[in-house]
């Protein structure tokens, strides 16, 4: 029997699900193959965890906790009569108004201000010194001082 075949059927061998003939063949192989024997041991240990995990003791407070939960769920919390109106109507309306106001304000701010510049004429000389201050007061001048 090849190791590959053993690996495919090892779990069934450990669980005792195989026919006797196949079981003996695997047993014989495992006793002579270190690799398969090591994997068999490892698999057996891992599957053995299930047995250790099974609950054998009961939680003594289980019923007390359960009863407390049942009682707390049995009494529905008293909701003030105005709460559903607040939650379902007033709150959404308030936030919608807030949202619309926000959008409106945003549009207002973003609109460019229309300035009537038609009657005002600047010559390039008039604007030049204002825009190009550095030329009239060069930085080298400051550094020299």
């Amino acid at each position: 029997m090849k190791c590959k075949t053993i690996h495919k059927n090892l779990i069934f061998f450990l669980e005792g699900d195989l026919p006797e003939k196949e079981e003996k063949q695997i047993e014989a192989h495992i006793s002579s193959c270190n690799e398969c024997s090591a994997f068999a041991q490892d698999l057996k240990k891992t599957l053995g965890i299930i047995e250790k995990e099974k609950t054998t003791e009961t939680n003594p407070f289980f019923y007390t906790r359960l009863k407390a939960r049942l009682e707390s769920q049995a009494e529905p919390a008293k909701v003030p009569f105005w709460k559903p109106v607040l939650v379902n109507i007033i709150q959404p309306v308030f936030f919608s108004i807030l949202l619309i106001a926000g959008i409106y304000t945003g549009f207002k701010i973003a609109t460019p201000v229309q300035v009537n510049t038609a009657s005002v004429h600047y010559t390039s000389e008039e604007i030049f010194p204002y825009l190009n201050e550095m030329q009239s007061e060069p930085i080298e001048g400051f550094l020299m001082e």
Binding site: H7, K8, L10, I11, F12, E15, D17, F39, D42, L43, T46
Partner: peptide, 17 residues
């Protein structure tokens, strides 16, 4: 069981324990 064995064999090969 087959799927479990496959996964546990992969883990065994990778030496994850």
């Amino acid at each position: 069981k087959k799927n479990l064995q496959k996964k546990l064999y992969t883990c065994y090969k990778k030496k994850c324990i």
